[in-house]
Nucleic acid binder design. Structure first.
Lengths: 345, 345
DNA sequence: CTGAAAGCGCTTACAG
DNA sequence: CTGAAAGCGCTTACAG
């Protein structure tokens, strides 16, 4: 009778129970892997489920406080290869562990971060992975128990575990490599310096310069294609022009290469370059681009596993930091000679 | 009493109702924008909600058959820039319309498609956007009412609306452009030809060749970096070597450029090239790469809006096809001369 | 080892 | 215009 009201003809637990001639509870126990079930009973339940094609309604399970088996991933921009690669690996890892993932991009609008977290919480997400937008500050009540792991950059305002690439060290090593070529005037070049990982790279650059007693140049900041060109022009003019640049991320490298191309300046003769972040076709480019290779897939995987552990252990984030080393891919834009016979990839 | 059992201290509708001195129903009506509510009552409800910081539990709403406001996006690979761009725009569009999106990558394993659809259905997803894996065939019962829109390629086995880029026409136009340079022997080059959109590009190539009465060469298929090299070697050897290639997607273009670089063959002199799919830095590359530009963001947006319409109208997919034109970006790898003063971007 | 009851937090009819 | 009851499809205690 009550059943006749149902609009959806989805098979329910009750249907399975009736078919198997058992109580709803028994079926539920079977589904949840409860140990004390007779083989015979289990068989009956299994058969009924198969015959009816039963699938548990997740909304009902979630409503009863069961885990949703869903995690959320919030990143600035999914179209950016760096984040796309992270997202792919997060998704793969989560799926392997039985989790579905929500993905939301903030487009660097910090206010949407908290909004997205809220919306995901409304859906009883089990945990959140967050690469926060520049200006954003989170508050404790924004999370309220939901485990969160920060990726690529820490979150301001709360104590959260986070997983990053060893930006500072990798930047230091890259600049050191440029220094080994004898360049003395090297500038770090890029877009907004408001992002933690970029700040770290700038610090890595500064440390490397200071260690050699060389002048730390101000961060050469551009906004877009046009300003990139004028910034680079300025770096190359004056009495002591810059000999090498260290773009702080792949986007900056692309802007730099465009500008150098437009200005007809050859690399590395006119200006040497060591990119933070490898770029597609970087090894086929003329000259091949030396770059810090970021282990994005590994970052995604480690962060996801860490979050799932927190969820499983019902442990809160305590500010634990995990750092992943990056490697240097030395090609020729830094000034190294071509070793035509040695395959670089 | 019953309340003392609750583990989560989340604020519920009942709490709000009590605080406002009203019935649960009234609060529910307010939340759902029911028109006939006194201003005074509305005020009371609003105040109570604000004071308590109430947020509706989506699981309960979904269990009652309300829409979940969640859509699913299933694609082969999220790390691929083509799909990453689509995913980003799907996500943006959906968010603007109040939808959250699940993203899952199949890694070209066709069996995981149906599994993912099933899992999303378990969570009462309102609709699904699918770029199916090569071998997959869907059955009607896999969907059972859930609206689905196919993207980039149709789905086999069911009737579903789909949104694609006009691959065939764009390919035709690109090959025609190569022909306008006087090349007579042109080959289509790429990876697996099992994918609908690639098939379309091959057909576009063939049509363009036939229209000029020229020989349609067999699809030059490679598997990886190594085979790409040998395939290209073969194309260039023999009595009538190929003069131009038309890589069927960006991945193929990258493989081709790597191979040509390794083989020390200059472009376009040694072999001209017109890429299907623009590549990052394509305009700074030497030579700048001519390419078909795919409007991925537009594809994602149109497909999402279409799906949301189906959901809103409770209309099933009927096989409607929406095609989006692609444009040609003419640079120099095709054989065109450099117009150094004309900015190409 | 299995079951009948109560309840999760909402919404859908049905009253008034 | 507002409310008391029943129910969505599950699971959590509590019995037996």
């Amino acid at each position: 009778m009550a059943n006749s009201i149902r609009r959806s003809k989805a098979v329910t637990l009750a249907d399975v129970a009736k078919r198997a001639g058992l109580a709803v509870m028994t079926v539920s126990r079977y589904l949840n892997g409860y140990p004390n079930i007779t083989k015979k009973t289990a068989r009956k339940v299994k058969d009924a489920i198969d015959e009816l094609g039963y699938r548990p309604n997740q909304a009902a399970r979630i409503l009863m406080g069961q885990p949703s088996n869903v995690i959320g991933l919030i990143i600035p921009n999914l179209a950016n290869p760096f984040f796309a690669s992270i997202a792919h690996s997060v998704q793969q890892t989560a799926l392997q562990c039985g989790y579905l993932v929500w993905i939301a991009a903030t487009n660097d609008e910090s206010k949407s971060d908290t909004e997205l977290i809220q919306r995901m919480r409304d859906h009883q997400v089990d945990g959140i992975l967050l690469a926060s937008s520049p200006g954003m500050i989170l508050h404790k009540h924004d999370l309220d128990q939901v485990p969160l792991v920060a990726i690529d950059r820490p979150v301001k305002g709360i104590t959260a575990d986070y997983v990053t690439i060893e930006d500072r060290m990798a930047a230091h090593a890259a600049v050191e490599h440029l220094l080994s070529h004898g360049y003395q005037r090297i500038a770090c070049f890029g877009l907004s310096a408001m992002i933690y990982s970029i700040e770290e790279r700038i610090i890595g650059y500064q440390e490397a310069m200071k260690a050699k007693g060389l002048a730390v140049l101000p961060y050469a900041q551009c906004e877009d294609k046009k300003s990139a060109k004028s910034v680079i022009c300025k770096l190359l003019s004056g009495r002591s022009p810059v000999q090498a640049i260290f773009p702080a991320n792949a986007t900056a490298t692309i802007l730099a290469l465009e500008a150098l191309n437009d200005l007809n300046i050859s690399v590395p003769e006119g200006l040497a370059l060591f990119s933070y972040g490898d770029i597609p076709l970087g090894h086929v480019f003329r000259p091949p681009i030396s770059a810090v290779r970021q282990p994005t897939a590994l970052l995604g995987e480690i962060a996801t596993r860490h979050l799932l552990e927190l969820i499983a252990a019902k442990r809160p984030s305590t500010g634990v930091r995990t750092t992943i080393p990056a490697s240097l891919v030395i090609r020729q834009s830094c000034g190294c000679a071509a070793h035509s016979d040695i395959p670089t990839e």
